[in-house]
């Protein structure tokens, strides 16, 4: 993968990911090595003030994309390709400087909060010393969390409240790019609607949201564009409006199949061997 040193700045693009691949070396029985390649060729771009959904079945390498952008992949992972944030290449030092401040993560579940620390304290960390408490309180107010919630431990809050705490954590430091990694599973419809609305609002304020999910309906309801991923490859990035009817507007057969497989549509099963088909089609 040739990397160009000088990147032409395009005003509206906040982050560009080009030909990203992530691989792990695993040891099988004995000392035989096996290279495991969860992300093979991932290319996408996020514009300012946009919700870009990344949709794919589980195991398609979506969470690893989040960890790559933040630079927190485990040490045994190898990464190739390039990422450009605000026209500058995201090298590890740059990622270290940005993470938690300009680029933040909304993780999946309560497991991502320290079980033995009060949630208020966890939200205040990214806000910095001094004004932390005021920012945390105003965020809790904004997300309709009771003021007393800050003094509670994670296990004392409901699933919906935890999601809103996690969102507060992500924006307490004034983030520009928010990576929401599966922030919705396990929520009842009302709580789901609220979380989605909060994400949309954040984008409308001028932040960019990378919304990683396997819920195509949730993605369609708030995203501007939807990237479809399978077997570690981005197959297609389409405007959210194209996911309609029988999916005639979609280019890739996998995207159409994914859309048609929804119970709300035709409930048509996605063929198991689609991954291979996609591979051959790319060649």
């Amino acid at each position: 993968m040739e990397s160009k040193e000088i990147v032409a700045p395009r005003q509206e693009i906040l982050l560009e990911v080009r030909n990203l691949s992530v691989s792990f070396v695993q040891y099988e029985k004995g000392l035989r090595q096996r290279i495991f390649h969860p992300i093979k060729d991932l290319t996408l771009d996020i514009r300012v003030g946009e919700v870009l959904a990344v949709v794919g079945s589980s195991g398609s390498g979506k969470s690893l994309l989040a960890h790559s952008i933040l630079g927190i992949l485990p040490p045994n992972a190898t990464q190739a390709g390039e990422m450009i944030y605000k026209g500058v290449r995201l090298i590890p030092e740059e990622q270290k400087r940005l993470r938690g401040k300009e680029i933040t993560l909304i993780p999946q579940s309560v497991n991502y909060l320290d079980p033995l620390m009060k949630v208020g304290k966890q939200v205040r960390y990214t806000a910095g010393k001094g004004k932390g408490k005021i920012i945390q309180e105003s965020l809790f107010h904004r997300f309709h969390l009771p003021a007393t919630a800050g003094e509670k431990y994670p296990f004392q809050l409901s699933g919906g409240m935890i999601r809103r705490v996690l969102i507060s954590t992500a924006i307490s430091g004034g983030a520009q790019l928010i990576i929401a990694d599966e922030p919705t599973p396990g929520l009842h419809p009302d709580a789901l609607k609220k979380v989605l609305k909060h994400l949309r609002d954040l984008a409308d304020e001028g932040r960019s949201i990378l919304f990683i999910t396997h819920d195509l309906m949730a993605a369609r309801s708030i995203a501007d564009r939807i990237a479809v991923m399978n077997a570690g490859v981005t197959l297609e990035i389409a405007e959210a409006e194209k996911f309609t009817g029988k999916g005639e507007g979609l280019i890739h057969p996998y995207s159409r199949a994914l859309w048609r497989a929804l119970p709300e549509n035709e409930f048509f099963p996605v063929a198991d061997d689609f991954g291979d088909e996609c591979e051959s089609e790319r060649k």
Binding site: G100, K101, Y112
Partner: peptide, 25 residues
């Protein structure tokens, strides 16, 4: 653990991270 991954995603690292999230746990 997941909560240390998240702490790292928020920019925490090194001994301070162990001190904040490790010792009590």
């Amino acid at each position: 653990s997941d909560y240390v991954i998240f702490a790292r995603a928020r920019g925490e690292e090194g001994f301070a991270l162990v001190w904040r999230h490790g010792i009590r746990n």
